[in-house]
Amino acid sequence: MNGSKIVLFTGFLGSGKTSLLLRCARNLAEIKKSSAIIVNEVGEIGIDNLQMKKMGYTVWEIFGGCICCTLSVSLEDTLTQLMTNYELDYILVEPSGAADPSAIYPALSHSGFSKENIRNVMILDPTRIEMFEAVLEPYLAASVPLADFAVINKIDVATAVEIKKTERVIKQYHQDLPTVQIDVKQLLNEQIQKIIGG
């Protein structure tokens, strides 16, 4: 394995993963760090990879073929190719927002990435937190404990009550999880550094 660090941008569809990932990629480029982007989003909020390519980012798309399979079946292949052909400081990965993020760890481990080289940034949308608790509680219970850092996004449109509730939900599943509140459109460089984790 080379010295690349993986940053996972996890979270449910529509939480703002793509926007945050792009902001982080741009920031890394500004500070002369090399990065690649891997996306695995099949759904109504798919990544506009052409736009990302136009912006100069290397984008690797990975898809399963089965209509019901949201797993990143070729993630390991993609990682191997990246590590063989590039010297990268960061690999930014956006797994499917519909998948259980625990499924991705065996692939990362098999590719030689230890826990210390993986940072799981979970993005939450506070405007939908009540729906998450009522409908998708198992998803929260599986995802939040795996996170290394939580981002409460959309604070420009969420109410104070929704933000407070999101904080409570995070604490319920992961007591000591460091958290930052952001409006991805107004992201500060210091916030990005916190998110990426230096």
Partner: peptide, 15 residues
């Protein structure tokens, strides 16, 4: 008979 978005690991017991 397919089940994926309705998986126990995704949706709450009530749903």
């Amino acid at each position: 008979i397919g089940g994926w978005r309705g998986a126990s690991g995704l949706v709450s017991p009530k749903i």
